[in-house]
Computed example of a mutant assay.
Amino acid sequence: MKISRHAKIIEIIQSKDVETQEQLAQELKNNGFDITQATVSRDIKELKLIKVMNAHGTHIYSTSSPGDSFLSNKLVNIFSQTVLYVDNVDKFIVLKTISGAGAAAAEALDSLKFSGIVGTVAGDNTIFILVRNEEDCKDIIQKVKKMISE
Rank of each mutant, 00 (worst) to 15 (best):
M1R: 12
H6M: 10
H6R: 06
A7S: 13
A7C: 09
I9P: 01
I13D: 04
I13Y: 04
Q14G: 02
K16H: 08
E19C: 08
E19W: 09
T20A: 04
T20C: 06
T20D: 08
L24N: 01
A25K: 02
Q26A: 12
L28N: 09
L28H: 13
N30A: 10
N31C: 08
F33P: 05
F33H: 11
T36L: 12
T36D: 11
Q37T: 14
Q37W: 11
T39K: 09
V40H: 02
D43W: 01
K45H: 10
E46V: 15
L47G: 01
L47M: 05
I50H: 05
K51V: 05
K51T: 07
M53D: 10
N54C: 06
N54M: 10
T58K: 14
Y61C: 00
T63D: 05
S69T: 11
S69G: 03
S69D: 07
F70K: 07
N73L: 14
K74P: 00
N77V: 11
N77W: 12
I78P: 00
I78Q: 01
F79A: 02
F79T: 02
L84G: 06
L84R: 09
D87S: 13
D90P: 01
D90Q: 04
K91L: 11
F92A: 07
V94Q: 07
K96L: 10
K96S: 07
I98R: 06
S99M: 07
G100A: 04
A103H: 07
A103M: 10
A106Q: 00
A106C: 04
E107H: 07
S111A: 10
F114L: 11
I117N: 02
V118Y: 09
V118P: 04
G119A: 13
G119P: 03
T120F: 12
D124V: 10
T126G: 04
T126V: 13
F128P: 04
I129H: 00
I129A: 00
V131A: 05
E135T: 14
C137H: 05
D139E: 10
Q142W: 14
Q142N: 08
K143R: 14
K145Q: 14
M147A: 12
